[in-house]
Computed example of a mutant assay.
Amino acid sequence: MEHLSVRLTSLSSSATLAMSQKSNELKAQGVDVINLSVGEPDFFTPDPIKAAAKKAIDNNFSFYSPVPGFLDLRKAIVAKLKRENGLDYTVDQIIVSNGAKQSICNTLLCLVDPGDEVIVPAPYWVSYVEMVKLAEGMNVILPAGIDQNFKITPEQLEAAITPKTKALILCTPSNPTGSVYSHDELEALADVLARHPQVVVISDEIYEHINYVGRHASIASFPVLRDRVAVINGVSKAYAMTGWRIGFLAAPLWLARAASKLQGQY
């Protein structure tokens, strides 16, 4: 007898992976295809990183790692966030996961109860809405067309928030549009969120260094939101390490501890 859970059957297959598979099939047939599906950099992992990985293998870094990640790695992430983003975290606020995708899913599973609403600006990365479904939440889609450079406005955000709103997923630089929120645009959104203390911001910043319009800004930099922003980042895009599966969550201590508890079970 085959019987799958409603949790699984409610999910859609990844459109990104389906497109990538089709692209590979066409390439195998000799078709000249430009694959715009997966966010795969067009360069290789830098040689110093590969050399360090080989050295780690020789030094027997082959046992179970701590649930939140190796301490040295978390210290390096803390230093990166301070150096590049002006954000202050402790190592206990950093949780390293199997890619930024797991970091986002961990965060949603820690926050969302059945029926809770999660605001997702559109266009969006296809996995966001499926992760919300997995957490038994309700997606609230905010369309942002080319006329507004694919970025939501403070007025849209204010109108979308209800007493059931638990989180906002904000991706900048955006996947899939490439649009980047400026410091002033983020500040305007932060002013709205300041009036709704129940809303946690999941700030997906994995494309931080693929930015051609100016300096990256993080919504975590605004003091009014400091204790309710979950910063998601990793090494996949900036360092061409998509297959290495190294992402991280930087979050308030209460959320980081919850994510570590969850990750310890899967």
Rank of each mutant, 00 (worst) to 15 (best):
S5N: 05
V6F: 01
V6H: 03
R7H: 08
R7A: 09
R7C: 06
L8Y: 14
T9G: 05
S10P: 07
L11Y: 12
S14M: 04
S14K: 01
S14F: 09
A15T: 12
T16G: 02
L17Y: 12
S20V: 14
S20G: 15
Q21E: 15
Q21A: 15
K22S: 11
S23Q: 06
N24Q: 13
N24E: 15
N24L: 11
E25Q: 07
E25K: 11
L26R: 08
L26A: 11
K27L: 11
K27T: 14
K27G: 04
G30N: 07
G30H: 08
G30T: 10
V31I: 14
N35Y: 00
L36G: 07
S37P: 07
V38G: 02
V38H: 12
E40Q: 12
E40M: 05
E40S: 11
F44T: 15
T45N: 02
P46W: 08
P48M: 04
P48D: 04
P48L: 02
I49D: 02
K50N: 04
A53W: 05
A53M: 15
K54E: 10
A56E: 11
D58E: 13
N59T: 07
N59Y: 13
N60V: 02
N60Q: 14
F61C: 10
Y64G: 12
P66W: 12
G69W: 05
L73T: 13
L73G: 14
R74K: 13
K80C: 12
K80G: 06
L81N: 14
K82N: 15
R83T: 03
R83V: 01
R83Y: 12
G86N: 12
D88P: 09
D88T: 13
D88Y: 11
D92G: 15
D92W: 01
I95H: 14
S97Q: 05
N98K: 14
A100K: 06
A100S: 07
S103P: 07
I104L: 08
I104A: 07
C105H: 09
C105V: 04
C110Q: 04
L111E: 02
P114F: 00
G115H: 04
E117I: 08
I119S: 01
I119R: 02
I119V: 06
I119E: 00
W125T: 13
W125K: 04
V129F: 02
E130Y: 03
E130Q: 10
V132S: 02
V132G: 06
V132R: 00
K133P: 01
K133H: 04
A135Y: 01
G137M: 03
G137C: 03
M138I: 15
V140C: 03
V140F: 02
I141V: 15
L142G: 04
P143R: 00
A144C: 01
